[in-house]
Amino acid sequence: MLCLQKKNLPRNFEGVIALKSPQGKVSFLRKKRILLLSEGFGKGHTQAAYALSVSIRQSSTEVITRVMELGAFLHPTIAPWIFSAYRRTVTSQPRLYGMFYRRQYKKSLNRVAGLALHRIFYNQTKAIIAQLKPDIIVCTHPFPNIIVSRLKRAGLSTPLFTLITDYDAHGTWVDSQVDKYLVSTDAVRKKLLDRGVPGSHIDVTGIPVHPNFRMEHSKEPILRQFGLRTCQRS
C-alpha cells in the first residue's frame, strides 16, 4: 500500500474547528476536505483546479482543499517525460492528435482501456483517497475522472464532481458514476444532455478564474514599477 509522507500533505489537512457552547463546553468539528485531481497535459486543467481551490478557501474557513496532479504525484520521474511527449505530439503532429480526438469524441473510454490505464499508471489512487479521506473529489481532467469513476463502481462512496475545463464535451469526460458536472456554457450542458446525462447532474458554472483577476489595483504604482507614464488623451 502506498504510504504518503506527512510532508506531502497540506499542513492543515487534518484541521478541526473548535466550537464552544454558551455553557462553555468545547466540541470539535472536522473541516470538510475537497480533493481536486488534475493532470499535466497542458496547464489549463490544473490552473482551473487551483482557481477553484482558492475560491473555495476564500468562501469558507471550514473547508480544506488539496490540488494534485495525480500522475506527477504517483510517478514523479516518468510523468514529465510523458507530458513532454504529449506536448511534442500536439505541436508537431496536430493532424494525428486531431484524428484521435475526433475518433473518441462521442465515446467514453471503454472499461478495458480504463482498467489498463488504472493498472499501469494509477494503481495507487485508491490508497491516496483512503489516506486523505476527502469528502468530495473534483476532477479537472478526464484521466483522474476515469480512475475515480472506476473506483466508485468498485464501491467508493465519495461524491465525484467533474469540472469540464473546455467549451466542449468530449466523450472521455462522460461517465455514469459522476455525481455532478460543472460546465462552462449552456451549449456544453446540451451536449451532455444529448449523451444521456440527467439535467439534475449538470450545473453551468463557467470555467473557474483565479480570484486575483478580480482584485482592483491602483495603476500608478504599476506604472512607476515599470517606468511607464499615463497616456494623455488628446
Rank of each mutant, 00 (worst) to 15 (best):
residue 2 L to P: 02
residue 3 C to I: 00
residue 10 P to M: 13
residue 15 G to I: 06
residue 17 I to K: 10
residue 23 Q to F: 09
residue 24 G to N: 08
residue 29 L to V: 13
residue 30 R to K: 14
residue 33 R to H: 05
residue 45 H to D: 03
residue 47 Q to E: 12
residue 49 A to G: 12
residue 56 I to S: 06
residue 56 I to L: 09
residue 56 I to R: 08
residue 57 R to P: 04
residue 60 S to R: 05
residue 61 T to P: 03
residue 65 T to G: 10
residue 69 E to A: 13
residue 69 E to C: 14
residue 72 A to S: 10
residue 74 L to Q: 05
residue 75 H to Y: 13
residue 76 P to F: 07
residue 78 I to N: 06
residue 81 W to M: 14
residue 89 T to V: 05
residue 91 T to E: 05
residue 94 P to Q: 13
residue 95 R to K: 02
residue 97 Y to G: 07
residue 100 F to V: 11
residue 100 F to P: 08
residue 102 R to Q: 07
residue 105 Y to F: 12
residue 105 Y to P: 08
residue 107 K to E: 12
residue 114 G to A: 15
residue 119 R to T: 13
residue 123 N to Y: 13
residue 125 T to I: 07
residue 126 K to D: 03
residue 127 A to N: 10
residue 128 I to H: 02
residue 132 L to H: 02
residue 138 V to E: 05
residue 139 C to A: 14
residue 143 F to I: 02
residue 144 P to G: 07
residue 150 R to W: 02
residue 155 G to C: 02
residue 158 T to K: 15
residue 163 L to I: 07
residue 165 T to L: 01
residue 168 D to E: 14
residue 172 T to G: 00
residue 172 T to F: 08
residue 172 T to D: 03
residue 173 W to Y: 05
residue 184 S to Q: 00
residue 185 T to A: 11
residue 188 V to Y: 10
residue 188 V to F: 06
residue 190 K to E: 15
residue 192 L to S: 01
residue 195 R to A: 04
residue 199 G to T: 04
residue 199 G to P: 07
residue 203 D to F: 05
residue 206 G to Y: 07
residue 207 I to K: 11
residue 209 V to L: 14
residue 210 H to V: 11
residue 212 N to D: 11
residue 216 E to C: 12
residue 216 E to Y: 06
residue 217 H to Y: 04
residue 225 Q to D: 04
residue 228 L to Y: 09
residue 229 R to M: 04
residue 231 C to S: 00
